[in-house]
Amino acid sequence: MKKTLAAVAVFLSATAAQAEYPEKPIEVIVGYSAGGGTDVMARTVAQFLEKELGDGASVVVKNMPGAGGQIGFTEVAKAAPDGYTLGTFNLPAALALTKDRDADYKVNSFTYLANFVEDPNTVVVAASSEFQSLGELLDAAKAEPGAITVGLSSLGGNDHFSANMIAAASGAEFTLVPFKGASMARTAIMGGHVAAGTMALSQTTSFGDDLRVLAVLADERSPFSPDVPTAKELGLDVEMSSLRGIVGPAGMDQAVAERLRAALSAVNENPEFQKMMADQGNPMVFMVGDDFAATSAAQDSVAAKIWEETPWK
């Protein structure tokens, strides 16, 4: 009897939660400081999500920068799965952190809601560089192993993984130079201090006169730079990108998770939202629920493999 009552109570409160959700402000935790690319995405999504949830819903972005995003990711993973704490999720960065240190979360510590941005990596040189094509660059790197320096935004991120995957696929050997952030790496490429880079496509688009993008590491050409061939076209089967989406803690109530997924899908379909994201230079690839979770699992095994073969610390 007691058990039945308890079950009824749980059922009632669950339906109540579903009916009234959200009854208090929803927090979106961003593991980086205000004004970064991830933060701007979170704020843009939050603004539209409020409208979609309707009924005076409030979505508040909270920045918890530190430890390369780890503090924020941990906060989300450990939060109560009641739908009131969500977070931004960066792939492969968030999962790379679980390989090179003892993080308090894993790939399955999250409920995957929706991914918005997928920014493919590139191979890029300065506009004044002697290398006109990916082939020339790789030939030089093979002729004298290590002679080609490659600027990265950090070790253990998508730039680094890109460089490693290209090296593995082509047999070339690079000297990796991890700067503090993509802009520093880009400046070093432009100044001729390193020979090449593997930064994300969105980092190159404003610098068309100073940089030459040799290849995009995606399965098809990007609408942002349709003239640039994919690595696959050039005979290298390498794909790498950085993804940004929204997750919640694992074990969220199904009904609440579905409500959020529906709302986030509606956000994505809003042309006004699409325009804002495009103005911010974000290449969009929308994935919801299981698709997003599958992508995350795939990224997790890529990170694990690279960590196993070429540990970076």
Binding site: A34, T205, S206, F207, D279
Partner: peptide
């Protein structure tokens, strides 16, 4: 720079 980014102003020559 973050403040500029919030307003969709991407740094660069453009």
């Amino acid at each position: 720079l973050g403040g500029l980014l919030v307003h969709g102003l991407q740094p660069g020559p453009m």
